[in-house]
Write a protein that binds this DNA or RNA. Structure first.
Length: 746
DNA sequence: GAGCACTGC
């Protein structure tokens, strides 16, 4: 709890986040702490909120907690932070942000969502004289939407045109110019820049925002930046983080090994968050069924609590659809006089129109209930939420290096996640958070979520690090190193793709080209050999299509299943999903005229297909640069139509085998419809969404695995098993003899 | 007879 007085305390500073246990029907608790009872008067608060909205941008800016930091040169902190981590020894005394950035190579800024660090810190730096003489201030974000929207906001605040002094750059959208001083960008984009300019000489300050999320590219950038700092003492790094992770960032970036803290190269600064208090309530006993628990809690709140929208966190589409329709049905039994209830689903697989519904204002007599996946935890910010219901679970990707499979598993959330979810109730006024698990269970949760780098296929990362000249990836300075087994598996795969040589060095040009290519190495390999297979036009389309998610729209429950199948079937090809995707794309571009209506009628996602077009264009540019001839499998033969199609199909499928050879599976002889991977003998099933579901192919290659109840192959194509020996003899024929992975270093 | 959380180049 925050108890220390600070020099910035003022009337508009809101009480910090605190936890209250209270009693309701299924929830137990005891009141532990509460400052500021009067704040709960909702009418007063609504009024205050109204006033805040009418402030000018400048006034709003000056009210942000981070602004006050600027006016005081002395800032002393020596207290427990609200998450219980004691930072006394690390807390700097008497330094302000600008001084810290100028003095230390790395400054770690702790600040809650809404404290203004993302929008304000780059502006202060620029105003203080950074980003002069053609240098820039970079600020990275894990998501594109954040990079673009924050840049727009800052341009507005500075009253400049977006793309002039303030800009952003994300894939396919560069809004910067030679004038740009403050540049917001995705973390992946900055990492890409290190391949062109390894010392990132364009920048004098780099701020890694939302570092606590530990996205894959944020983690890699941290290691790379630490390396760059050794060669560029003039480069200043700011890491913005939540409280829990601050100490690990500090240890990572502080190169001072002596006890003399004046020699520290890193420091921590913490900022106040602008957050209303949220009462947290736990389930009294473990729930047998959190889906049912969520529904009941929604109606408990609806009948007993004052007005305010509800946000429910569940793990996936199936649960969400169920809860939404149950709420809808049961709402009919509410008395006529009561508040209406409007349940809305929210997950990434929805079309944009469906997603936008959650932002529509509700009438005064209606309570909105948004039932969401984790997308609402950090990616989407919802206004007006007063109640949060948290099931305590999340679907998370896990990588199994034994068989190279990425699985999607339902796992308990971390304490940091629980806090973040709870915080979603305190953005507009004091709220309540209902945790559908006991306090004892909460205490067993891990502090933070496992970083992405420790649960992902590392092949692309290793390739890119090697392209940066970091040959010895096993000894790369990771903030948290991925397990060695993940590294070994990735090195093995890269070796089999011939991206690495016998001693683990990047091959030229193949390995280097694969590192540059913005696709998975296996797919990159396919594209680079597609000229030889005489099908590069088709393959670049297929690559673009498998790179885009949610091409197919899930029909609503009301739609007739047979009708859905009829719509889907018009694109189907018996050879499998890759060729079917090619059909969808060609249909969209040629017959569909790239229109939204055409997509809608065929249950296709217009936005996804439009993105596929852009990705295809980008991949074509790479192929031209790599001197891969752009040819169509249908070109230049005088065969009749049928034979020509047959030949094209074979060319494309063989080309797929040239990269996906390690992901081949053979049908079990028992007629069960199950498969075993040829290399590891892992049992697999055909995904029900696949064209090949119930078609009994003998041998297939697949793009990826999703493991839910069973392990399913997705994006599957039939092949002739003899092609494996023909196209990947090094992997299959000699596999048992020559099974050594390359050494990691030279 | 059964189903993908989220994000990035």
């Amino acid at each position: 709890m925050e108890t220390a007085s600070d020099p910035f305390g003022s009337a508009d500073r809101l009480p910090s986040f605190f936890i209250l246990l209270a009693i309701t029907q299924i929830f137990k608790g005891s009141s532990v702490d509460r400052d500021n009872e009067g704040e709960t008067d909702t009418t007063v608060l609504a009024h205050a909120e109204q006033q805040y909205r009418h402030l000018t941008l400048k006034q709003q800016r000056e009210r942000l907690p981070v602004f006050k930091l600027r006016k005081y040169s002395i800032w002393r902190r020596n207290r427990r932070l609200h998450c219980g981590l004691k930072l006394t020894s690390l807390t700097i005394v008497g330094r302000e942000l600008l001084y810290a950035v100028a003095t230390y190579q790395t400054t770690i800024v702790i600040g809650q969502t809404g404290c203004g660090k993302t929008t304000q810190i780059p502006q202060y730096l620029e105003e203080a004289g950074w980003a002069k003489n053609g240098k820039q201030i970079a600020c990275t974000q894990p998501r594109r939407i954040a990079a673009t929207s924050v840049a727009q906001r800052v341009a507005d605040e500075k009253n400049v045109k977006l793309g002039a002094e303030v800009g952003y750059i994300i894939r396919f959208d560069d809004q910067t110019s030679p004038k740009t001083q403050i540049k917001y960008m995705t973390d992946g984009m900055l990492f890409r820049e290190t391949m062109i300019d390894p010392l990132l000489t364009n920048y004098d300050v780099i701020m890694i925002d939302e570092a606590h999320e530990r996205s894959l590219y944020t983690d890699i950038l941290l290691g790379v930046l630490k390396k760059i700092q050794k060669k560029r003492p003039d480069l200043h790094v700011i890491i913005s983080s939540a409280t829990l992770d601050a100490e690990s960032f500090y240890r990572f970036f502080n190169h001072n090994t002596s006890k003399d803290t004046t020699k520290d190269t890193a420091t921590i600064i913490s900022l106040e968050g602008r957050m209303y208090p949220v009462d947290t309530l736990y389930a009294e006993e473990p729930l047998a069924d959190y889906v049912e628990g969520a529904i009941q809690t929604v109606f408990d709140i609806h009948t007993k609590e004052p007005h305010g929208d509800i946000l429910v966190f569940l793990t996936g589409r199936e649960e969400i659809d169920k809860v939404v329709s149950e709420i809808y049905d049961r709402a009919k039994t509410l008395p006529r006089s009561s508040l209406h209830i409007d349940p809305l689903p929210l997950y990434a697989g929805l079309t944009q129109e469906e997603q936008l519904r959650v932002f529509e204002p509700t009438p005064n007599d209606t309570r909105k209930v948004i039932v969401s996946t984790n997308i609402a935890e950090a990616s989407v910010t919802l206004e007006g939420i007063v109640y949060v219901i948290d099931c305590g679970f999340v679907k998370i990707r896990a990588y199994n290096p034994k068989n190279g499979m990425e699985a999607l598993l339902v796992a308990p959330i971390s304490k940091a996640s629980a806090l973040q979810r709870t915080g979603r109730a305190g953005r507009v006024r004091p709220g309540k958070s209902f945790r559908l698990y006991t306090e004892e269970t909460y205490n067993t949760l891990r502090d933070t979520t496992v970083p992405e780098i420790q649960r992902t296929n590392l092949a692309p990362v290793i390739l890119q690090l090697k392209a940066l000249g970091i040959d010895n990836v096993l000894r790369f300075d990771f903030l948290t190193a991925p397990p060695a087994a993940f590294m070994v598996r990735a090195l093995e795969l890269l070796y089999s793709l011939k991206a690495l040589d016998d001693v683990g060095r990047l091959t030229i040009p193949l390995g280097m080209q694969l590192a540059e290519f913005p696709v998975d190495p296996m797919l990159g390999k396919i594209l680079l050999s597609s000229g030889d297979f005489h099908c590069s036009q088709e393959m670049v389309t297929i690559a673009a299509m498998v790179s885009v998610q949610n091409i197919f729209i899930q029909p609503s429950r009301k739609m007739d299943k047979l009708a859905v199948m009829d719509i889907r079937r018009q694109f189907w090809v018996e050879e499998g999903d890759h060729l079917s995707l090619l059909n969808v794309y060609n249909g969209f571009v040629q017959r569909g005229g790239k229109s939204g209506k055409w997509c809608h009628d065929r249950l296709l996602n217009f936005k996804a297909l439009s993105r596929a077009i852009r990705i295809r264009q980008q991949l074509v540019r790479y192929l031209k640069r790599f001197k891969v001839p752009l040819v169509s499998a249908m070109d230049g033969t005088s065969l009749d139509q049928d034979k020509q199609r047959q030949q094209a199909s074979e060319r494309i499928r063989k080309c797929l085998v040239s990269g996906y050879f390690s992901q081949a599976a053979r049908a079990e002889p028992d007629g069960s419809g199950r498969f075993r991977t040829i290399r590891d003998g892992v049992l697999l099933n055909i995904h029900p969404d696949s064209v090949l579901f119930n078609r009994d192919p003998k041998c297939v290659i697949y793009h990826e695995i999703v493991e839910t109840n069973k392990a399913y192959m997705r994006d599957i194509t039939t092949i002739d098993e003899s092609w494996l020996a023909e196209l990947a003899p090094h992997f299959y024929q000699y596999n048992n003899v020559k099974k050594r992975p390359p050494t990691a270093s030279h």
